[in-house]
């Protein structure tokens, strides 16, 4: 799934421990849920100050998936 690759690529570029990045995709009828796991020390790097980075990632992911007409949700698991 190319959206998963896309997300994986962005997250790996942001974190210090790219090998620890894991993404689970839960595909529903109308929405796709991306469950993201990163190293404990990297959680702040993907969320950012008041969630700025997480928000930017969601925005870009939404744009990447827009053509399919689906909604996405990105859950960062701590």
């Amino acid at each position: 799934m190319k959206e998963k690759e896309f997300l994986l690529y962005i997250i790996k570029a942001l974190v210090d421990e790219p090998d620890e990045v894991e993404i689970n995709v839960v595909e529903g009828e109308k929405s796709t849920i991306f469950e993201l796991k990163v190293a404990q020390a990297d959680i702040g790097k993907v969320i950012g100050k008041s969630g700025r980075i997480a928000k930017a990632i969601r925005t870009i992911l939404n744009a990447a998936i827009a053509r399919s007409g689906k909604r996405i949700s990105l859950d960062i698991l701590g």
């Binding site: 570029a13 980075i53 990632i57 925005t59 744009a63």
Partner: peptide, 14 residues
């Protein structure tokens, strides 16, 4: 310009 802004933020960080 929302997507461009988001992309700019991430590029800045990387």
């Amino acid at each position: 310009g929302k997507t461009l802004e988001a992309l700019q933020l991430l590029t800045n960080i990387v």
